[in-house]
Design a protein around this nucleic acid. Sequence first.
DNA 1: GGCTAATCGAGACGGTACGTCACGTCTTACT
DNA 2: AGTAAGACGTGACGTACCGTCTCGATTAGCC
Lengths: 193, 193, 193, 193
Amino acid sequence: MVTTTGQVGRPRSEQARDAVLHAVDDLLLEVGYAAMTMKGIAERAGVGRQTVYRWWSHKAEILLEASVADAQEELAVPPTGSALNDLTAYLQALVTFLTRSPAGVAYRALIAAAQHDTAVATLIATSDVLGASSRAVLTRMTGEGTHVGDLDRASALLVGPVFYWVMSGRDPLRLQAADLAQEFLRAVAVDQG
Amino acid sequence: MVTTTGQVGRPRSEQARDAVLHAVDDLLLEVGYAAMTMKGIAERAGVGRQTVYRWWSHKAEILLEASVADAQEELAVPPTGSALNDLTAYLQALVTFLTRSPAGVAYRALIAAAQHDTAVATLIATSDVLGASSRAVLTRMTGEGTHVGDLDRASALLVGPVFYWVMSGRDPLRLQAADLAQEFLRAVAVDQG
Amino acid sequence: MVTTTGQVGRPRSEQARDAVLHAVDDLLLEVGYAAMTMKGIAERAGVGRQTVYRWWSHKAEILLEASVADAQEELAVPPTGSALNDLTAYLQALVTFLTRSPAGVAYRALIAAAQHDTAVATLIATSDVLGASSRAVLTRMTGEGTHVGDLDRASALLVGPVFYWVMSGRDPLRLQAADLAQEFLRAVAVDQG
Amino acid sequence: MVTTTGQVGRPRSEQARDAVLHAVDDLLLEVGYAAMTMKGIAERAGVGRQTVYRWWSHKAEILLEASVADAQEELAVPPTGSALNDLTAYLQALVTFLTRSPAGVAYRALIAAAQHDTAVATLIATSDVLGASSRAVLTRMTGEGTHVGDLDRASALLVGPVFYWVMSGRDPLRLQAADLAQEFLRAVAVDQG
DNA sequence: GGCTAATCGAGACGGTACGTCACGTCTTACT
DNA sequence: AGTAAGACGTGACGTACCGTCTCGATTAGCC
């Protein structure tokens, strides 16, 4: 019997893929999202332009592939046993992610691009790192007895203030994670028995 | 006596200015922010390219000048006498502004551009429509006896959830302005005597 | 054994090259040298602007490439066996070339451009059609027994009067090739034994 | 009684006229003819642009007005009593004029512009400095007994070689004025009794 | 070991926007 | 009416990147 893999011709080069993802990571920090071009990515990666276009259609797509894993890791906070402490830790991680992390810079760039590009909007909806990470914390709280009502709305209530604060360019130092966590708990407190 | 007006040379054409601002308004809705070019604006306005560059350095700058007035008007809510009603009305206006209004589309485009353009970030900091309008509501509440603590943090707490919800492409229909207003009041309740 | 062709990337399009050269030929006659622009050439040729700049740096360079072959052909006169007849034929061809031929119009434009553009001056020095063609006639004369001394000075003596006459806008009809040829022979007669 | 000159309104400013002519002189040497612009001339002269356009239509026209006087002076050679010496002196002056003099640079620029601008061609025909100066020398020779036949053709025979030599960018040092003068006399010798 | 086929790099292709410059005209206030 | 100043609409400049295309070279599975 013949083992047919259906794969004919030269296989995709993993080396080229990695080179492109690393090039995007580097370029985002060096020149920023707007100045990052498909041409520049290909040249930086030492890769043909066609090769980039063959596997990704937008620079947003490459950026997403290059940063989601990092983002998820950075936004995962270990359980402390206390809802307030969990929330505070999460909000602190969120602030750090959005303002300091390369993956956070990528995330903000993608959110920005999504405002005038439906394709990007669809793309980031499929890997909603802020929503997923916040829901993870809230779900754990629920499991431990602290209920928050509708998960999506609670997620927005938790993430929104920080998100807005950072996106509108305010100084992140004035954000007080512990206070925000407490206010959040007060806001959703009535939703539970 | 010498009457020196200080006005030398041909004065700026108000007609050209208006034409550019209207062209930007139109183009934003027709082709979107990304596809809107300085060249396109000039041609649409029937104006020389240099004339555009003479008075504005970015398309963001034009867009801001073309939309702030509208934005401010749309986000001003009349006092109802009740804090809860005021907040609810404001949040409803905010949702409508961000999701339906042309000025809101412009605002989202500007926030997006600000993520990778320091010049735009500086620009929108000088005419912070969401911050100003929300602070107006909160200040009025304070005058009527409902205190909210630090105005900027309260503003972020109020605006943030809606802002995040809309910017990350979620369905605005699921947002419930009245519930959000109540949760907000509960969150900040302790800050006051 | 490795067969390295040294050819990397897509090869230059001969079609584009021809289109540009023809466009320049056409435009020179239609709008003249001064009104001929790089943009116009590209559009007329149905070619990208970058493609023109990739292979030529000035319109003069294109014009030269487009006209030298024609110029050389038009200024080559068949031997008649008589020095006087050869010179007369050459001078007649020269007048026709400078006043009637498209290649002559190109040549005059290039000489003009060379007056305020060192790059063009260097360029036309490398393909000096008037000098080369006149020296060809004079060399042939020398081979047939009529010596003219220094070839370059004799060339200037032969070509100069016609060149000056035409370039300063005088009526070419008053130029009498046969008389000029005779005067030339008289002028250089002593230089030989 | 009122002295009516027919002149109404502010008279033309001689100061502005001089400033423009000097600016053109300076700019020609500093940046060359091609890079010399009407805008640049006006700014250098400290004069309004409209003022320049009011009195001259081309930069060639200004250049002509600014340099003809100098050109005529530089090409006028004093009589020596000998035809050969007169011709030699004239040819030497001509070489110096065309290769070293600012007025000569202006003249070459104008001849160049005339090749693709009929207006300039007409203009320089009205003040033909090379023709006039050479005819002056030849006329004086005729008066002293050395006939040269048709004045215009003799002028071209005399001026042409030098003109061609310089315009085609050859090294002027190899031109030998005395030899050229002798060859010229030999060429035209038969035209006279 | 040759064949087929998809990928790789390189780089030219036709487009189009960039931001700047000069054009020649105009509209001010001043002389 | 002439002047300096300077904004106006127009359009070319040379550059950059777009996404596509055509090369030769490479690398796999299949016969």
